[in-house]
């Protein structure tokens, strides 16, 4: 088992990326009851924006700041002018809308950037390696895990240490009541959706150098991200942390230990969790 540390670190890196993608997804679902199928497409958009910014400037850190901002604006526009209009017609319409958006974004990406993989190199300091557990390991993967941890801690601090956090958690329980207490819930929803989009954009930038940037990358991560929020419990940030790490490691060690079964392992885990605790590991009973 000399490969153990390598696969463990691989798992952490992929788990970190999964958390970045699923945190926004679970937040939007918990708050607005919208399962956003376009979330992964927005993540892909983040990766492509980043590709272009890197081509133009070569500045990874700049890309890491600008892409989330761009996605924040796109998310705000989608919520304000599309999602809010169909909200009164119920969940099915919201679901169909985000489903359609995912297709549109994917086609636009093919049209603008082409239907083939693009290589993204982070370069510089982050492109180097580091000695850890007695092995030489790419620093970038450590960086992915560290930034996921940072984002997770930041979100936890906002949710549990600020007044805004209290409002957000209350909205998860009962958004209509929050409205009746005098809070502008439509504005809160727009902010949450835009923040979720920004997170997906951040994850997209991070994913670029790790995975390849191609039009299928959205669907590739979407399934794992959905499994994360089902296993963790819909709307639970803590659940997303735990489930992301489990699934990251499962994907990583699955390839090492049961190569033929590795694709099925994720679904197996989800089935077991659903049978034992249908609301997910950290989900509240509805």
């Amino acid at each position: 088992m000399s490969d153990f540390p390598v696969f463990f670190l691989h798992g952490l890196a992929y788990g970190g990326l999964l958390f970045l993608v699923s945190a926004g997804l679970t937040l939007v679902f918990g708050m607005m009851n919208v399962l956003n199928f376009a979330h992964a497409a927005m993540y892909m958009l983040g990766a492509y924006f980043s590709y272009t910014i890197l081509r133009m400037t070569g500045q990874f850190w700049l890309s890491l700041m600008i892409c989330p901002l761009l996605l924040f604006v796109i998310g705000a526009v989608i919520e304000r002018f599309l999602l809010r209009r169909v909200h009164v017609f119920g969940h099915v319409h919201e679901l169909l809308l985000t489903f359609g958006l995912a297709y549109i974004i994917t086609e636009v990406v093919k049209w603008v950037w082409g239907n083939f993989p693009l290589a993204v190199n982070v370069g510089g300091f982050l492109g180097g390696t580091v000695e850890i557990f007695g092995i030489t390991y790419p620093l970038y993967r450590i960086f992915i895990f560290a930034s996921a941890a940072l984002v997770g801690i930041m979100m936890a601090l906002i949710l549990y240490r600020t007044r805004l956090g209290i409002i957000l958690r209350a909205a998860v329980n009962d958004s209509e009541m929050v409205n009746a207490l005098g809070f502008n819930v439509p504005l809160v929803f727009m902010g949450v959706f835009a923040f979720g989009a920004a997170l997906s954009g951040f994850a997209g930038v991070i994913a670029g150098p790790l995975l390849s940037t191609y039009p299928g990358m959205a669907n590739e991560i979407l399934i794992d991200a959905f499994v994360v929020i089902v296993v963790g419990g819909f709307g639970s940030l803590g659940g997303a942390v735990v489930a992301s790490l489990i699934i990251g490691e499962l994907q990583s060690f699955g390839v090492l230990l049961f190569p033929k079964l590795s694709l099925a392992l994720v679904y197996l885990l989800m089935s077991v969790v659903l049978i034992i605790k249908p609301s997910g590991l950290f989900g509240e009973k509805q």
């Binding site: 209290i166 209350a170 329980n173 009541m177 409205n179 009746a180 207490l181 502008n184």
Partner: peptide
């Protein structure tokens, strides 16, 4: 909208109480 009505000084205490279950009493 409900939040605008609330801001004018109308409080609403709903049927079934609708406490925020996962928040503490203080919150």
């Amino acid at each position: 909208r409900p939040y605008e009505v609330a801001r004018l000084g109308v409080g609403y205490v709903p049927e079934d109480r609708r406490i925020f279950r996962s928040l503490t009493v203080h919150e």
